[in-house]
Amino acid sequence: MTMNSTEAAPTATSSCGTPSAAVALFRSLGDPARLAILRRLAEGEARVTDLVACVGLAQSTVSAHLACLRDCGLITSRPQGRATLHALAHPELLDLLAAAEQVLAATGEAVDLCPTYGTTPAAEESAR
Results as ranks from 00 to 15, higher is better:
residue 69 L to S: 03
residue 112 D to A: 14
residue 56 G to N: 08
residue 104 L to N: 12
residue 64 A to Q: 02
residue 31 D to Y: 04
residue 90 H to V: 06
residue 76 T to W: 00
residue 63 S to L: 03
residue 24 A to K: 12
residue 38 L to A: 05
residue 96 L to F: 06
residue 34 R to L: 02
residue 126 S to M: 07
residue 62 V to G: 01
residue 117 Y to V: 09
residue 107 T to S: 14
residue 58 A to W: 00
residue 72 C to Y: 04
residue 6 T to W: 02
residue 80 Q to L: 15
residue 76 T to I: 06
residue 70 R to T: 03
residue 22 A to K: 04
residue 53 A to T: 02
residue 124 E to V: 12
residue 65 H to M: 02
residue 84 T to F: 05
residue 40 R to D: 00
residue 81 G to E: 07
residue 63 S to C: 02
residue 59 Q to H: 05
residue 6 T to E: 09
residue 26 F to T: 10
residue 106 A to Y: 12
residue 89 A to I: 03
residue 79 P to K: 14
residue 5 S to P: 00
residue 81 G to L: 11
residue 8 A to E: 05
residue 105 A to M: 06
residue 55 V to Q: 01
residue 25 L to P: 01
residue 60 S to P: 00
residue 127 A to F: 08
residue 94 L to R: 15
residue 111 V to E: 06
residue 74 L to R: 13
residue 105 A to L: 09
residue 23 V to L: 13
residue 10 P to T: 06
residue 25 L to T: 02
residue 16 C to K: 05
residue 31 D to R: 11
residue 114 C to H: 15
residue 126 S to H: 03
residue 33 A to W: 00
residue 48 V to E: 01
residue 109 E to D: 14
residue 115 P to S: 12
residue 57 L to H: 15
residue 78 R to N: 04
residue 5 S to D: 14
residue 108 G to H: 13
residue 99 A to G: 08
residue 44 G to A: 10
residue 80 Q to T: 14
residue 99 A to Y: 10
residue 128 R to W: 13
